[in-house]
Amino acid sequence: MTGLRAWAQPHRLVLLALAAGIVGLCALTLRWDWVPRYLPLAAEGLWRTLWLLALSCTFGFLIAVPLGLAQAAGPWWLAAPARAFCTVIRGTPLLLQIWLLYYGLGSLFPQFPWIRESDLWPYLRQAWPYALLALTLSFAGYEGEVMRGAFRGVPQGQLEAARAMGMPRGTIFRRIWLPQAIHRALPTLGGETVLQLKATPLVATITVIDIYAVAGRVRQDTFIVYEPLLLLAVVYMAITGAIVLAFRWLERRVPSRPG
């Protein structure tokens, strides 16, 4: 309770009242009659945003671990390509990468008959595989750099102790090196996941209907400009809040002093 009391100073109560007043004013004076009509579409878009985020972060992280390991401890012929990949991904805009994959590969694939006859073709004709691929590669590029630092940051003594105990290299990596590196990287990973969420609306430019595209459609259909965008901002803030809370929970589950 003391935390709440310390937080609720008089000026904060005034600010809160002001904020509530603005929200109330928005609810009363702006137009919200379109919401029920677009609710099913919005739910679909929200679902698409969420699974694009979850899948691209998962796959991207799985690629980032070997990328980081190669840069932190690999021989030069593995470290150099990994570093080049991270530099290229981090040095070019995501929008350009998405368009390169979608328009570039999308115009290349139909030229090969064996691709068109393969079982994958029904998927390759849609937009979302390109969106997922671009988002995954982008996340892998940024996280590869983060994991490089995290692998380097694990104290040498930990690895030497494991080696002295006679652990095989695979076990050392699985039990000592990777867990401690992930623990070090967790705060950064939380921030990067939020950044990845903020990158997902770019997929709307290649006809993937995510929550952002739904807001765009409302604007086109009804000429209502602010209301969908404001609601969209609130939705993104809610997802961001959920991600931040989830990572805070995850960080607290890991004991803060290893060993």
């Binding site: 939020v194 969420l197 903020k198 990158a199 997902t200 609306p201 770019l202 952002y212 807001a215 400009v225 602010y226 965008l229 404001l230 969209l232 901002a233 993104y236 803030m237 961001t240 809040g241």
Partner: peptide, 18 residues
């Protein structure tokens, strides 16, 4: 907090129109 939680694309549209 708000600027860092909302996608730049949405902010650009809101601020541009507003």
């Amino acid at each position: 907090t708000v600027v860092r939680a909302v996608p730049e694309l949405v902010l650009i549209l809101i601020l541009y129109f507003a």
